Amino acid sequence: MLSRKLLLCFFGFLATVFWGKQFFITSPVSKNSKSKLHYLTHTVAAVHDQKQCLVAATNNAALCNEEELPGNFAQILSEPKPKLKCGENGMQSPWKLNRHAWMIFVIKSSRNNSELRKVVRETWGSVLGLGGKFFGYMFVVGVDGVVSENLSIENSRHGDILECNVQETYRNLPLKMMAAFTWITKLRHMTTKFISVTDDDCVINSGLMLDEFERYGVTDDGNRIYCGYKYDEQLRPARNNNSKWHIPKELYPNKFYPGFCHGALWSLSPKIIKKLVCVFYFTEINQFHLEDVLITGILRRKVGGNITATKALENETLLVYHTGRKKDPASFMKKTWKEWKPEIIVGREKVEKRGNSG
C-alpha cells in the first residue's frame, strides 16, 4: 500500500499536468526533467493565483452596488481576453532594468518623445540609489506599424524602453499600461517592493518619496495603491464632447468614479499588480480610455484593494511636478530639477550612474 505522502505527491503531479496543459502550456517544455518540473509547478501556481483572483473579484463585484461600479465593469467575463504582449518578436525590452531595485518607475511615454526621455535620464532618472535603496526606470511605448531605427538605437544605448504591441494613441493608454503590467508579472526572480507609475513630462522628488514611504511605514501588502499626486474620491465623468477626458453616459452611466489616483504619480506593489492584471483580462472595458481611473479606481475596487492619498506633506512640498500642458515641458523639467536636486541628495548617500545594478 502506498503511503499517504506518496499518494498526495502522485495526485499533485496529475493535477499539475492536467491544469498546465488545459490552461497555460503554449510552447514545448524543455526535455530536462528539472526544467519540466519547474515549468509545470510555476504553471500550477499561476492557475491557482488566477482562480483566487477571480473568486475574490467575483465576491467584491457582488458587494459593489450600482453607485460604485456599473454592471458592465462589475461583471466577470466567462473567457479571458487575448493577452497583451511587450518586448517580444523584435519589440524593444529594458535589458538594463534593475529588477532588484527597491522601486521601479514605470514611465508612460510614446515613441516620438525621445527628447523628454533624454531629460528624464539627465535629471531625476539619473538617481539610481539613495540611502541604501535603489531605483529602476523603464519607459513604456506602443507601436505605430513602422519599425523605428532611432528607437532601437536609443534602447541599445540605454536599455530602458519597453515596447508593447498596442497602437500608440492616447486612447489606448489603458491597454499599454496593462500590457506593461502583464510583462512585469512575468519577470522571474524580481525582488522589487514597489512599482511607481508616472509620465515622461514629470519630475519626481525621489528623496522625499523615500522619506515618506519610511515615515508612514508604507508596506507592499498587496492590497493598497498610494497616490503621490492627487486623489479624487467623487469625480464626475466629463460629459462634454470636447473634453480630453470625455466619457459618454452609455459607456460609464454612474454619476461618480470610484476613488482613484491621478496619473502623474501612483505607487503599488507587484502583489496587487498581479491581481489587477488577472481581473483586467476578465473585465470588458470597451472604449474607456482613462487609465488612472480604470486601474487605480475601477479595477482596484474590483479586486478589493484600498487607496491611500500620500501627497500632503509638511510645507506643501510635492512628490511630483507635472508640467501638464506647458508648451516646453523639457525646460520646466530641467528648471524644477535644478531647484529640487540639492534637497534630494542632502544627507543621503547617492548613486548617480546609469546602468548600476545595485
Rank of each mutant, 00 (worst) to 15 (best):
I273S: 01
T323A: 09
P248G: 04
F139C: 11
A46I: 12
E154I: 12
P94H: 02
T198V: 10
R239P: 00
N241K: 11
G347Q: 05
K275M: 04
L299Q: 05
G305Y: 06
G355V: 10
L54F: 02
R171G: 04
Y137N: 01
R239K: 13
G228A: 14
E233D: 09
S30N: 12
N72P: 07
L84I: 10
D199E: 12
K36F: 00
K31M: 11
K51D: 11
K5R: 13
S148V: 13
S148C: 08
P28Q: 09
I25C: 07
K96G: 04
A179R: 05
L235I: 14
W337L: 09
T283H: 01
A101V: 15
L208C: 13
Y137H: 07
C53S: 14
V119S: 11
S114D: 15
G259L: 00
T219M: 04
G131S: 11
R224A: 08
L290P: 01
R301T: 15
R236N: 08
K21D: 03
F11Y: 07
G304P: 07
H246M: 04
A62V: 13
V143L: 06
Y216K: 15
F139T: 12
V127Y: 08
G142V: 15
E163H: 03
K350W: 09
L40A: 06
T198H: 08
Y252R: 03
V120N: 02
V146W: 00
K51Q: 12
K341T: 04
K275H: 05
W183P: 02
E214Y: 03
E115T: 14
T185Q: 05
T41R: 01
D49L: 10
D221N: 13
K96P: 00
I25V: 14
K335Y: 09
H189N: 11
E352C: 06
D160S: 10
R117S: 13
W337G: 10
N205Y: 08
K34L: 09
R111P: 00
K230G: 05
Y216L: 13
I104M: 01
Y252G: 09
A312H: 08
L319K: 05
P80V: 05
K274M: 03
P94Q: 06
P70S: 02
